[in-house]
Design a binder for these strands. Sequence first.
DNA 1: GCCAGCCTGTTG
DNA 2: CAACAGGCTGGC
Length: 278
Amino acid sequence: MPELPEVETIRLSLLPLIRGKRIQGLKTYTEEVLENPHELDLKGREIRDLARKGKYLRLLFEGAELMIHLRMTGKLLHRAAGESKTENPHIRAELDLDDGSCLQFEDVRRFGRWKILRSPDEDRGYAQLGPDALSDDFDFESFACRLSRHKRSHVKAALLNQRVVAGLGNIYCDELLYRSRIRPDIRVDQVPPARLNVLFREMRPMLEEAVGLGGTSFRDYVDGLGKKGNFQLSLAVYRREGQACPSCGTKIEKTTVAGRGTRFCPRCQPEPRIKKGK
DNA sequence: GCCAGCCTGTTG
DNA sequence: CAACAGGCTGGC
């Protein structure tokens, strides 16, 4: 479910409520949610920070961390002390804090994972991440370099690849390609370099706008306090197939790229012109 | 690279 | 009933 803006919104909503609290206990309600249950005991440890890279959340302690990936339907919800915890069959894990509050992990599809680590790079997926899309060390040069390792991929597939840039998922890839006027199903090496530059320059403002609006909510996604986001009101193409392009009025089309539902405006995102000569 | 698989729920 | 869903992994 959540991509960078949603995970960042969750992080911002939870941080002031949990920083400085100590862990009283960790409960799991399914076996598979916690990949390494016996690694380290978090009990008594103080939460120093809640960090994010790409779509990964990291609850940081001294000398240890709890890494959380929400995958498709995961939610991380703060319950204040005494707040009635409604019966919910999809709660997979719970972290109790020393002020009587807790963090509940709700995850209908059970793809989400918690992992206790000493260092984040013990997780293979995390270790391979490219730069976070909103980090300062994400510049055009490194972006172009990483993209060039996937010249023959569809440009959308390369953007979905978390080793190229960390944080983009299906929604924001489609929206970013629309804003950059690039068809999702052309090869990386078919994108004119000037277009790639536009794409890079559109990425940060789009993601910051989405964070500012609290992410995109269709049905599942809410932040750490159960609040919905509003970026769905800004979507130009995602889930808008058959409707009018906000720019030119052409009907938005839907196709499949990299195994994912993909929307684009056939007029605003045209096939690249064939170069004359060779 | 692509595609099935992981799960469950919703939608057509 | 089948197809699809905001992600990632592993096998070919």
